[in-house]
Design a protein around this nucleic acid. Structure first.
Lengths: 106, 106
DNA sequence: GACTTATATTAGCATAGTTTAATTTTGTTC
DNA sequence: GAACAAAATTAAACTATGCTAATATAAGTC
């Protein structure tokens, strides 16, 4: 139809762009990214995260809520604690790639 | 020093987190992400991008400025046109990985 | 140098996101 | 069920972003 279509290696369907932008936006906040880094490939209670990131329980809770809402992290209750973890291994790999791409000297 | 340190596979140095968060935030906007998808691995004048993304020249110009400022895209003048492109191949690879991670059915 | 094309800049307004502080809910232990 | 611990919720204040419309700059053409 349009010769530009063939030249575009990246899918630019509105729906996909929206999805990706929502996820990137969720991760694109220093405190939320720090929460993700603290979690890494493990599962931690909210309390532990609060201790690591250096802000209030309320603030962490709100940011965790955003990450959960956007599907970046999962959480489950265990007794009186809520355990959080990064969604899946694929996302952990992506975080690794992000680190390499954005945190090296260019 | 602390047994948690060894358990953390992800670098959580403040400086790196800041850097990555800034980049992710820049990419985490639908219009900016669309600009990046339109660019792909090619170089295009601002005008072409405006035509593709469906908003005003002023708006595109401002978003391009943000992407440039955060080091996501590069641009150069050629005559009366400004040609834009995604920073480097590594970032293109990352965009590819982002697509896979965020745009597939999970 | 007037006209056109391409891009950038500015200011104002509207909306969204962030943090703080206080309160509430949920679960556990005695 | 009182007291405590863990997490969530709410509201208010603050800050940042995004968009529009208008204007400015820069280069190319006649």
């Amino acid at each position: 139809m349009n010769e530009l279509v063939e030249k575009m290696p990246f899918d630019n369907k509105e729906e996909n762009i929206q999805k990706a932008a929502i996820a990137l936006k969720a991760m694109g906040h220093p405190l939320r990214l720090k929460i993700l880094c603290v979690l890494g490939n493990q599962e931690f209670p909210v309390m532990d995260i609060v201790d690591q990131v250096g802000t209030t329980q309320s603030n962490v809770s709100q940011h965790i809520d955003i990450l959960r809402e956007k599907g970046i992290i999962l959480s489950r209750r265990e007794g009186s604690k809520i355990l959080c973890r990064v969604r899946d291994a694929e996302l952990l790999d992506l975080m690794d790639a992000m680190q390499r791409t954005f945190c090296q000297i260019h």
